[in-house]
Amino acid sequence: MCSTCGCETGEAVIEGGSSDHARLHAACMPHSHAHDDPVGHSSARILRIEQDILAKNDAYAAHNRRALAERGIFALNLVSAPGAGKTALLVQTIRALGAGCPICVVEGDQQTSNDAERIRATGARAVQINTGKGCHLDAHMVGHALAQLDPPRHGILMIENVGNLVCPAAFDLGEAHKVVLLSVTEGEDKPLKYPDMFRRASLMLLSKIDLLPHLDFDLRCCIDNARRTNPDLNVIGISARSGEGMAEWFAWIGKGAQLARAAGGAQAPAAPLAEWSVHA
């Protein structure tokens, strides 16, 4: 839990963000304090709650989505099992597209800022979130990371989630799409074992296809498995190493980025843009 306000940062640490976090919270958290116990209130009663378990996260996510949309930023949430090649893919993507369109990255890992450093080595801006014991990013952490990054209008935001095919599925971050990576060194049945993640993704990237000649991975079977839970899933086979399939991936990003820019307005906005991070 965030020590400043009791909000749900968990144990997450946002690189370079502690003082900013404190400042944000001082301004935005009117705590409701417990009142004295009402007298003669000893009997149990039933309270209707009727609230989604993830309602708080969803409110932060909606805010992130709005702040991104107003700026015409195309945001993707990259998810996979550990080691499927998310960071390698991002590095190659920035090298290819970064000159034409600013790409900012939010990196999520339990520990280390290695991946953010790999991204920064390309010249792109990146903020690392360390989730500690937490096994997924949540929308509140991402809001604070966005306040750090302040990604420019009409750019692209890539969020590399913690390597995990379970928990990140349920936590909306405010992205336009989830992109799930599955490397061909994993099993064809991963989409059946983790159907929720594949159901929520718009695109599946079958990664490391340069290794196919050495494996007996059945691409067709894997795609069929994924489309069992998500009949409309787009699929692209890619290799960050050989470059195969990357043009198709770039085209997919380009289309989304163009739509986001058009919707976000090419002109300077009339009203001030929404703050990056608020506490709903």
Partner: peptide, 11 residues
């Protein structure tokens, strides 16, 4: 697909 808290019994 829902995950909801419906009611509490409390005092």
């Amino acid at each position: 697909t829902q995950m909801r808290v419906r009611e509490l019994e409390a005092e």
